[in-house]
């Protein structure tokens, strides 16, 4: 069921910080800060991860000219253990908090919850977003950082970035959230943790299709439909699914993927970027800025997440995935 927001909550500001490798991102000029130290001068990767979340929130609050005490809710998550980096950031931010886990789709699921809180009048300002830190996530899901395994071309690179948006009441000069679709957990039997794009593409397809159908829209109604981190192969698969469903390939022009574009054509990163911080960083910097500049009037942001764990992979389970979408417009 699509959620239609009568009050059209707005994205008042976005804060994005990223790590050293992310300076190479084609989106890096849109980030608020990139740091040379991947650990943010902290002792462990996980502490650096926490610091990154705090700094992204600080940037968002600074832009809106507000302080922690002005924020009603903090919604967010990451991929590490029981989301301790975000939980610990919440401790320091001192804002009422619910941790949300939709893997890499958390950037949007948190905005949806924040928008609902705004819609019912419970929140004037809420921080929503997600983050990932390469070292902390890789060691959890794959191998130690210094282990020399050969990654296939289908693999994606977990970004080090945190992106948080400030969701507030409707203001005309800010991009506003008109509608949202909460995705199902979709499993097409893919089981390769080094080929996440293939696992996630069907989830993105279902969410986009269901959103368009229920909103009575076509792809051409959008200036941009941006998926989160399908990567270069995943976006190809998503387009392939649309083509097979009877849509002409030239109609698919608005369809892009943040993960596929994130590091440009650099082959070091194989199929592109991934991680909860990938979609969050691009959505809450580049997209918000482009909308405020008037480049895009109607955008569908579709964050995609692979709901696996190292345990589920070792036990031979396939990878269920989800995709959550919000429709944003600018007057």
């Amino acid at each position: 069921m699509v959620i239609v927001f009568q009050s059209k909550p707005s994205l008042i500001a976005g804060g994005v910080v990223a790590g050293p490798l992310e300076k190479r991102s084609i989106f890096s000029q849109h980030f608020d800060a990139t740091y040379d130290d991947e650990r943010w001068q902290m002792k462990t990767n996980e502490q650096g991860h926490r610091k990154m979340v705090e700094e992204a929130c600080e940037f968002a609050m600074k832009k809106a000219g507000v302080k922690n005490k002005d924020i009603d809710y903090f919604m967010g998550g990451d991929l590490v253990n029981q989301m301790t980096p975000t939980n610990f950031a919440a401790r320091d931010l001192d804002i009422p908090f619910i941790g949300l886990f939709s893997a890499c789709a958390t950037s949007i699921s948190s905005v949806i919850v924040a928008s609902l809180l705004t819609e019912v009048g419970a929140s004037n300002l809420a921080l929503a977003g997600a983050s990932s830190q390469h070292n902390a996530v890789e060691r959890q899901f794959r191998y130690p950082i210094n282990y020399g395994s050969q990654k296939p071309q289908t693999a994606q690179w977990t970004v080090t970035a945190a992106g948080y948006a400030l969701v507030g009441k409707h203001h005309e000069e800010y991009p506003s959230i008109e509608a949202a679709t909460i995705g199902k957990s979709v499993d097409y039997g893919m089981d390769d943790p080094f080929h996440m794009g293939a696992a996630m593409a069907p989830a993105a397809f279902q969410t986009i299709q269901s959103h368009l159908e229920q909103r009575n829209q076509k792809i051409y109604h959008y200036d941009l439909i941006l998926t989160g981190d399908l990567g270069q192969l995943g976006i190809k698969l998503l387009k392939g699914m649309f083509v097979e469903s009877g849509i002409k390939s030239e109609e698919l022009k608005p369809l892009r993927d943040a993960g596929a574009e994130f590091y440009g054509q650099d082959e070091t990163f194989q199929s592109g970027a991934s991680g909860a911080g990938c979609s969050a960083a691009v959505f809450f910097s580049y997209v918000i800025q482009q909308m405020r500049a008037g480049t895009y009037k109607r955008v569908l942001l579709v964050a995609t997440g692979a709901l696996l764990s190292p345990l589920s992979f070792q036990q031979g389970e396939t990878i269920p995935c989800t995709a959550h979408a919000i429709e944003i417009t600018m007057k």
Binding site: G19, H134, N135, E138, I145, N146, T160
Partner: peptide
């Protein structure tokens, strides 16, 4: 003596 580093270069 070493720390894990994620840099690719």
């Amino acid at each position: 003596i070493f720390k894990p580093k994620g840099n690719v270069d």
